[in-house]
Amino acid sequence: MTGARIRTSGLTLRYPNRSVLQGVDFSMEPGELVAILGPSGAGKSSFLRTVAGLVRPSSGMVQVDDQPVAGPRADVALAFQDPCLLPWLSVERNVAFGLTFARQPHLSRASRKERVTLALREVALEHSRTWAPSQLSGGMAQRAALARCLARQPRALLLDEPFGALDEVTRADMQQLLVKVVRHTGASTLLVTHDIDEALLVADRILLLGNNGTVVDEWTVDVPAPRAPHIQKLGEMRIQILRALQNSMSRAA
């Protein structure tokens, strides 16, 4: 499986009472992991939903592999901060549930089972396949939500603050898992986060979306993994990002 090439051109999204995105030009190569930072209300989640085809832009265009996005695609998966697991289904059946979404290809029972098994193995939840969601910790629930996406074998993975509600230790574990999964599957990944440190630890590139709904800055994180030992270089970049974020917020005020 190879990742998708994603591009937006002049992407603009307006609501009757406000403008959310304004002429966003963006591109990412197959297999890249790009983090999107920005203040609350900058349009980060709206950008993700527009790329996913859930929201139609007011103007401009989203393309996946040079094909215009006109709606949800089978090869693009979106996950949120809430795992959204169905409480009456086991972990295994929650993961399989993603294969029944609209526009998913028809699979035989054997193929569905194989995909679910591989996805659970990818997130180290094989031992919990028969558990109910109520038996899972917060981190395990997010693993199950990620497995539900992976079972679809997406070429693009869109994540909207998936680790925001987790404690620091569990969050660090999930960040490491995300990097491993992206490298192993090759899925192009867009991660919306409020956490600068998280972006620095996992992303190949970091984009800063300003309050005006445009990309105001960008950084390439050319630090080898694992990145935790490279505190000094990451710390310098963190200061740059924090200053850019503060400047963006002050200009909007």
Rank of each mutant, 00 (worst) to 15 (best):
T8R: 03
G10N: 09
P16S: 15
N17E: 14
S19N: 02
G23F: 01
D25H: 00
D25R: 03
P30R: 08
L33H: 10
G41C: 05
G43V: 02
R49N: 06
V51K: 12
D66L: 03
R73H: 11
V76G: 09
A79N: 02
A79D: 03
C84Y: 11
L85Q: 02
L85N: 01
S90N: 07
S90D: 01
V91A: 12
N94M: 07
N94W: 04
T100L: 12
A102S: 11
A102I: 04
H106M: 12
L107D: 07
A110I: 06
A110D: 14
L118N: 05
A119S: 09
A119E: 06
A119D: 08
R121D: 15
H127P: 00
T130Q: 14
P133Q: 10
S137M: 05
S137H: 08
G138C: 11
G139H: 03
M140A: 12
Q142T: 10
Q142A: 11
A147E: 06
A147Y: 04
C149M: 01
R155T: 05
F163N: 00
A165G: 12
E168W: 01
M174K: 06
L178H: 10
V182Y: 06
S188G: 13
E198H: 04
L200W: 03
V202F: 08
V202N: 00
V202A: 12
D204F: 00
D204C: 04
L208H: 02
N211W: 00
N211M: 14
N212I: 04
T214D: 03
V215F: 04
V216L: 06
V221R: 11
V223D: 11
I231C: 08
G235I: 05
M237R: 09
L245T: 13
Q246D: 13
N247A: 10
M249A: 15
A252I: 01
A253L: 14
